[in-house]
């Protein structure tokens, strides 16, 4: 009985260590393979790649990719771990268009994500440039019918503030032949414009049956001196719904009155902003020292005058 339990414990231990070993073997294999979600693999460019697009891609590549991946076909990429690899090699070229697109967009580990830096058109231009090193590549362009969910229609986005200023209500409609149809099921995002970029407001929303989506406003959102914020609304899937965007100003933020960092009196500030005590003590010190010197000079003058006077008196007496 005892030995039996011992055996079972040993067996359990062995099975656990086996499992750990198996995991150790499997984990690096998984981490080496960069899997792209199945629904994103088949993504296609809406436009055919041509010389001018490849040229634009070359410029974008040199700006964003060259520093790590080197010149395609030359193999002069950076020696990093894991190695970035040369885009002209078979390893990268056997990816589908959608897979390369996804990898540039999302990034992984040391490879940065470019979704905030490059538009989808820019990324497709880079894909076009990478493909220009593959002589056997034949492009499949996204069929015309699916490229626009509302073909020929003018997409209009309107934004308005809810009554309590707690949320922004977005309405998306497609206008064609003077009739307005709500755009249903479109992923939309709302951003606040900041000095160096766009700050996402709430998460991505999907428009409902009325083409409406509601974005919450955090209570501590900062606006300008009058509480205004500059917002920008756009589609997540620009290939399907187009690049329609709406930029407007809403009075939805806190009023922020900027305070100059040099307004207070301080040791480090300019003479006019020096602390009172330093101005006073320095001023008094100067007055005291000069006053003392002047008093001494006056006394010396007095002594001189008295001396002259007594000399005259002595002469007269003599």
């Amino acid at each position: 009985m005892k030995s039996n339990r011992k055996r079972s414990v040993r067996f359990r231990r062995r099975s656990i260590s086996l499992l750990v070993l198996a995991l150790l073997v499997v984990v690096p294999v998984i981490s080496q393979e960069w899997l792209v979600p199945a629904d994103r693999q088949g993504r296609l460019s809406t436009f055919a790649f041509n010389d001018s697009i490849e040229k634009a891609g070359l410029q974008l590549y040199n700006l964003n990719c060259l520093s790590c991946h080197g010149n395609p076909g030359k193999g002069n990429y950076q020696q990093l771990i894991p190695p970035p690899g040369d885009p002209a090699t078979e390893k990268i070229q056997r990816n589908r268009d959608g897979e390369i697109f996804f990898k540039i967009m999302e990034g992984r580990g040391q490879m940065p994500s470019f979704k905030n830096t490059l538009s989808s058109g820019d990324i497709w231009a880079i894909v076009a440039y990478i493909r220009s090193f593959n002589s056997g590549y034949v492009q499949t362009v996204m069929p015309e019918i699916t490229s626009g969910a509302y073909p020929g229609a003018l997409i209009a986005i309107t934004l308005r503030l809810a009554a309590e200023k707690e949320s922004v209500i977005m309405k998306v409609s497609a206008i064609r032949d003077n009739t307005s149809v709500p755009v249903v099921g479109a992923g939309v995002k709302l951003f606040v414009k900041r000095t160096f970029g766009l700050l996402p407001l709430d998460e991505e929303k999907i428009t409902d049956d009325n083409g409406m989506a509601t974005f919450g406003i955090p209570p501590d959102l900062r606006g300008d001196t009058t509480g205004n914020i500059r917002v920008s609304a756009r589609f997540t899937d620009e290939e399907k719904f187009g690049t329609a965007a709406k930029d407007t100003v809403l009075q939805a933020g806190l009023k922020v009155i900027p305070v100059s960092l040099v307004k207070d009196r301080a040791m480090w500030n300019t003479l006019r902003k020096a602390p009172w005590w330093i101005l006073l003590s320095y001023g008094l010190g100067v007055i005291l020292v000069w006053g003392f010197i002047i008093v001494v000079m006056l006394k010396l003058r007095d002594i001189f005058i008295i001396g002259e006077f007594t000399e005259k008196e002595n002469k007269r007496e003599a």
Partner: peptide
């Protein structure tokens, strides 16, 4: 804003 990803 992040200087690399331009994420705000």
């Amino acid at each position: 804003t992040n200087g690399t990803t331009k994420e705000t």
